[in-house]
């Protein structure tokens, strides 16, 4: 009986937590007229996937998606390559300034976006990279890198040094040991880190909003964020766009939820 009560309580909380998302999903299945129906209702006489088709005409959603994919993928690759090298150095070598470097990595995750956006903007503009994918990729990578290094450093440290020592005795160089031994062993960690880096860039709004200005380079969150409230009567299509945009994060989250939750509790995720 006590167990039943608890499950009921948990279900109620779950409904409350999911309510805004459920309502958004429900709205995405409605017609535009139905979204203005009074009183609002969950089940309308006419429900379809039409909004998911119409929104491609209303927003340049295909372009936004392409930009988001390009930016997030390139950011993931760039940060993982640079991050692996750095994390390798940090976890396998003893050198001066290591402690300081780690502290700086931790500290720069706290850096307010609003206090670095103006210099970023000026630099990107002066490099003639304003409103380009490359510009946004560089900025996203710079912002994500400390966190990626921090995660990879944690994963690399769990792999015993002896495994590499064996490879070194067999005549591998340090770099070969990194690529042939350490990285393959750290593959699950690399995968999880890649997902974090991808999502970080995929969901990022502030820098993308300020550093892009045309349909061809704006990412999905910028498209949604800018149009919210501007066009008041297309709630169904906006909902459809928001649902589609949320699918990759949700799927990836389900894939790595264990690592994700562990990472969360390590206090490392923004």
């Amino acid at each position: 009986m006590k167990k039943f009560g608890l499950i009921l309580l948990m279900s109620l909380v779950a409904f409350g937590v999911l309510l805004p998302i459920l309502w958004m999903f429900d709205t995405s299945l409605k017609t535009m007229i139905e979204t203005a129906h009074l009183p609002p209702r969950w089940i309308a006489p006419e429900m379809s996937l039409q909004a998911y088709v119409d929104m491609f005409n209303f927003l340049p959603f295909a372009r936004y998606t392409l930009s988001s994919l390009i930016t997030a993928s390139a950011t993931t690759v760039l940060t993982l390559v640079i991050g692996s090298l750095a994390a390798f150095a940090l976890s396998r070598f003893v050198f001066r300034g290591k402690h300081l470097f780690l502290l700086v990595m931790l500290l720069s995750q706290m850096l307010p976006g609003s206090s670095i956006i103006i210099p970023f903007f000026e630099l990107i503009r002066d490099l003639r990279l304003f409103d380009t994918h490359v510009g946004l990729i560089l900025v996203h990578s710079a912002v994500q890198l400390p966190f990626v290094i921090w995660l990879l450093y944690g994963f690399f440290r769990t792999i015993p040094q002896e495994v590499e020592d064996a490879a070194l005795i067999d005549g591998c160089s340090r770099l070969e040991a990194l690529f042939r031994v350490l990285l393959p062993l750290a593959l699950p960690g690399l995968g999880a880190t890649a997902i974090f880096a991808f999502l970080g860039s995929w969901n990022e709004f502030f820098f993308a909003l300020i550093l892009t200005s045309s349909d061809a380079t704006q990412t999905i969150p910028v498209g949604i964020g800018l149009f919210v409230g501007e066009y008041l009567d297309v709630w169904n299509q906006m909902s459809a766009a928001a649902v589609l945009f949320s699918l990759p994060p949700l799927v990836l989250f389900l894939l790595v939820q264990r690592t994700f939750i562990k990472g969360l509790s390590a206090g490392a995720i923004k």
């Binding site: 948990m10 279900s11 909380v13 779950a14 937590v17 999911l18 309510l19 805004p20 998302i21 309502w23 958004m24 709205t27 995929w202 969901n203 709004f205 969150p221 949604i224 964020g225 919210v228 409230g229 709630w235 906006m238 909902s239 928001a242 945009f245 949320s246 994060p249 949700l250 989250f253 389900l254 939820q257 994700f260 939750i261 969360l264």
Partner: peptide
């Protein structure tokens, strides 16, 4: 399962979260 459900608001983009609340 409940833990998974309760974590969802943290996973979806803040832009989507803001939009969903604005609509509701």
């Amino acid at each position: 399962v409940f833990k998974l459900i309760y974590t969802i608001p943290w996973v979806i983009s803040p832009v989507v979260a803001g939009f969903a609340w604005k609509w509701i």
